[in-house]
Design a protein around this nucleic acid. Structure first.
Lengths: 231, 231
DNA sequence: ATGGTATTACCTACCGGTCGGTAGGCTGCT
DNA sequence: AGCAGCCTACCGACCGGTAGGTAATACCAT
């Protein structure tokens, strides 16, 4: 007998397959990963793998839905009840950046990279789940702008600027670079949603477009060796 | 045998092949596009195509170098001599956004999407060309911050925020959406590099992090139907 | 407790087709 | 004559996917 004997709690095994497949697809791309390789990584034959899944595209669809679940659990659900729109956006950006930089969910990276791989209904379904996030951001931007808390900006442009800054990170971030993910999160949050000084103590009015609490902080002076990738 | 560099006398046909291949690879991805399809789109057989190129990876490398040439010609060369760092960044963002939104150069989109497809020396070569752009942006951010023209921000974080906003656009922009590319460019430039009022006439200090020239402009009030894609 | 029957979870072996790439031949221009 | 440019024909490897079998387990009436 093979070394089975254990009872894998139904969905447990399936999720393990999704995570293994996600790891490979994240590394080599969807088209660049064969079912053979995925099966081998799951310590199975290809036919054995096909016992659990329908076909390759459905596998990708399942991975992406799993990734959206993880995102909603680790980002959206943690910030959507924050009353203040700016604080909501700040916390959201922070959580989202850390979701991307910490490599715990390859599924999320696949959602980001393979944005045009799925077609038809599966594509539409994932896009609809994404759109809920965009709507959430747009509303927060609209509220923040209506309260005069941020510069007046088209909520769509605000939302997609937010997303660009945050999600592009997957293309260049390396965990052993000069900047930690925490520093990146802090820096980007303060760049897009600056904290206003509590008291208006002015040094000189100058031409600086806005006053800031944070002095200069951890910002090193132009050390060109970044340790990060190119975008 | 053939040498790596193409001879200039018959560059026309070669560039047409690059552009045709780029169109297909941009649509279906590098791994998802076969040499068969590329050859057919060039109205050739596969063997005929291989008369002009060495192999598939070299073809991608040539496309990416061509894309970097186009980028440097249409963006970098037009802004790198602007003395004022903020104006340099504003103009650069604008040109770069329009390079992405107008679909004239599929090669550039391929550079963005296939950021991890090349390996070895070819990958390092393209990455080095990209890095020159990152360095250019970092220096501009450092200068602008040193002059107090923008919020003090780590130049690396500034540069990659800039790039994220600009380059992520390829994932969601549709030319027939609600926002034109010009509106997106204007909105993003004003969001990241706000124009300061010429005279410091203050109404009330308030909580608004910065004072703005632009009143509310073309910003429509939260029309949720965006016409754009999901990110 | 027992035997019978489904069901699950895999396997080997194979399918038609396509992959990137090449050998060698045939044109037509110089 | 020589060569660029392009062709037909083909290579071995691999693609996504399936047919059919097998061992182990789960369920269940007796």
């Amino acid at each position: 007998m093979t070394h089975t004997g254990r009872k894998p709690d139904e969905g447990e095994r399936y999720r393990a397959i999704l995570e293994t497949a996600a790891r490979l697809i994240c590394e080599r791309g969807y088209e660049g990963t064969s079912m053979q390789e995925i099966a081998a990584a799951c310590r199975m034959t290809k036919a054995g793998l096909y016992h659990h899944i329908q076909n390759k595209e459905q596998l990708l669809f399942a991975i992406m839905n799993y990734g959206m679940d993880l995102f909603e659990e680790q980002v959206l659900s943690k910030v959507q009840d924050i009353a203040d729109p700016v604080e909501r956006l700040r916390a959201c950006m922070r959580h989202n950046i850390l979701l991307v930089t910490r490599g715990w969910s390859k599924e999320v990276i696949i959602i980001l990279h393979e944005h045009a791989t799925l077609t038809g209904e599966a594509r539409a379904f994932i896009d609809a789940r994404k759109k809920k996030y965009v709507d959430f951001l747009q509303e927060a931007f609209a509220q923040a702008a209506a309260q005069g808390r941020i510069r007046p900006v088209d909520p769509t442009i605000g939302a997609f600027s937010f997303l660009g800054m945050v999600l592009w990170i997957y293309k260049w971030f390396k965990p052993d670079g000069r900047l930690t993910d925490e520093q990146i999160a802090d820096g980007m949050v303060d760049l897009l949603f600056p904290q206003v000084a509590a008291a208006g103590a002015e040094g000189q009015p100058g031409t600086s477009p806005l006053r800031v609490v944070r002095p200069t902080g951890t910002t090193g002076p132009d050390s060109s060796g970044t340790g990060t990738e190119t975008p």
